[in-house]
């Protein structure tokens, strides 16, 4: 699914900053991996590499067996759009568009027709438990509902990997728990998940946990 072989990233200087030391990691189909580490440890760099936002400066990053470093920028963007679903801490919903439109946005760059986009968006919203709020504007949704819309938007494109960056960072603990339940449910359904967090409680939900400290990755033994 995702395979890092000696992948690392050094921002060119002067002086060069080594944001992520060469690391090896293999995430298999259907795994739920959590990534922990304090702020500034290199979590974001890791996310950028796995999320195909940055190419590693050393080593390789394989996604579904495709060497992403060998791709051109446009190909990498397209691959990202098709195989990776992003969930952000701050939701990033378009404020003046209905929930289903926000979800349908996930298919906009896939050449899917309008009617089909709408139908798929509806199905996905039902899947995350928001079948009753299809036409709601984000401003009328609660934080938990907004994050569900964001998850639906990530899921609608049928990605290989769901990449969540602090998905519960902006939510209170009860809502956060419900979002985590949703993620766990997706995991049971076979989805491959990678959740970046600095909350140990969130990290504990994963089937595997890797930690990043000062740009060095280490796998934590399951507790």
């Amino acid at each position: 699914m995702v395979e890092l072989r000696g992948a690392g990233l050094t921002y060119p200087g002067p002086p060069p900053v080594r944001a992520l030391a060469a690391c090896d990691l293999t995430v298999d189909q259907g795994e739920f991996v959590t990534v922990v580490g304090p702020s500034g440890a290199g979590k974001s760099t890791f996310l950028n590499i796995v999320g195909l936002l940055d190419a590693p400066t050393e080593g390789v990053c394989l996604l579904d067996g495709i060497d992403t470093g060998a791709l051109k920028d446009r190909e990498r963007t397209s691959l990202r759009g098709r195989r990776i679903g992003f969930v952000f801490q701050s939701f990033h919903l378009l404020p003046h568009r209905a929930a289903w439109e926000n979800v349908a946005l996930g298919l906009l760059y896939r050449g899917v027709g309008h009617d089909e986009r709408r139908e798929l968006a509806r199905e996905t919203l039902v899947r995350v438990g928001l079948g009753h709020r299809l036409d709601a504007l984000p401003s009328t949704l609660s934080g938990g509902e907004r994050q569900r819309v964001a998850v639906a938007r990530a899921l609608v494109g049928d990605p290989s990997l769901l990449l969540c960056d602090e998905p519960t960072g902006s939510l209170d603990s009860a809502t956060a728990a419900s979002i985590l339940d949703l993620l766990a449910e997706l995991h049971r359904g076979g989805m491959t998940l990678m959740v970046i967090t600095h909350d140990p409680a969130v990290a504990a939900r994963g089937s595997r946990t890797v930690a990043i400290h000062d740009g060095v990755m280490s796998e934590l033994e399951p507790v």
């Binding site: 963007t77 990202r80 990033h92 996930g106």
Partner: peptide, 16 residues
């Protein structure tokens, strides 16, 4: 910029 970043994450090319 947030929206642009989001669209990029969803697979939009720069030209889109």
């Amino acid at each position: 910029t947030g929206e642009i970043g989001l669209r990029r994450a969803l697979g939009a090319h720069g030209r889109h």
